[in-house]
């Protein structure tokens, strides 16, 4: 219902993400591939949604577009009240630094920077580095004693927690998590789940791509994608 009245006028007061007929096409040798096909979706502030679907359904494409790392071929996207399509390249970089925090399945830490420096790198691109604050962020994810370790000296779970601390350091309103527990064992999966729960309780908006029904069950809402379309949308509980 909210979608029908959205972009022509103002964004609904609690909608932090609003997509309207979002389409993403890729040119390939086989012809044009439509990864996302006219998707419309609204995410409320503080909501945790899980995006599920088989491989190739467009989940990662959607997250990349939401994270302003990719651009839609058609349709509109408003994030935190801003029509992202209207932003210049530089404005988009700034917007991403301020509004989006990424948690990757592959962690994507810079291999030659220590845990605390990886967090400070996000601060550096946002505004100014603050080591005590970066150390506090590590403390929040239980890694205060691993601050000076390189990613190669950390376990997968620890790397993912550094990734979470990095995603949160600049207080972004939206957290995008692409298979956040996809590369973790059960114990570390549990730890990461706890962190995400805590973030959700603290009012953070989370958009999470997952194959794991157990992870999806933690979300407020589950959106299922098939062939680039929303096939189903239901409450997780």
């Amino acid at each position: 219902m909210i979608l029908e009245t959205s972009l022509q006028s103002a964004t609904p007061p609690d909608a932090v993400i609003e997509l309207r007929d979002l389409t993403r096409e890729y040119a390939s040798r086989a012809g044009v591939v439509r990864a996302l096909n006219a998707i419309s979706l609204t995410v409320q502030r503080g909501e945790w949604i899980a995006i599920m679907g088989p491989s190739g359904s467009g989940k990662s494409t959607l997250v990349n577009i939401l994270g302003c790392l990719d651009q839609p071929t058609a349709g509109t996207m408003r994030i935190a009240g801003t029509d992202v399509h209207q932003l210049s390249r530089q404005e988009l970089d700034r917007f991403r630094a301020e509004k989006i925090g990424f948690i990757f399945q592959q962690f994507h830490l810079i291999p030659y920077l220590t845990a605390v420096e990886n967090i400070m790198l996000a601060q550096y691109f946002h505004s100014m580095t603050d080591e005590p604050e970066a150390l506090r962020a590590l403390e929040h994810v239980g890694l205060a004693d691993r601050a000076q370790h390189l990613p190669s000296q950390l376990s997968g779970g620890e790397q993912q927690r550094v990734c979470i601390a990095r995603a949160l350091i600049n207080q972004p309103p939206i957290l995008l998590a692409d298979e956040p527990t996809g590369n973790l064992d059960a114990a570390n999966q549990q730890i990461v789940q706890e962190h995400l729960r805590a973030l959700h309780r603290a009012g953070r908006t989370i958009v999470m791509v997952t194959h794991d029904p157990e992870m999806a069950a933690l979300a407020d809402r589950v959106v299922e994608l098939h062939h680039g379309r929303i096939a189903a949308e239901r409450s997780a509980s």
Binding site: L69, Q90, D93, R96, H108, L121, A122, H126
Partner: peptide, 12 residues
């Protein structure tokens, strides 16, 4: 590394 920095909000 370039892509990670971009994801963290670095400018070109």
């Amino acid at each position: 590394d370039f892509a990670i920095m971009k994801a963290l909000g670095s400018t070109q």
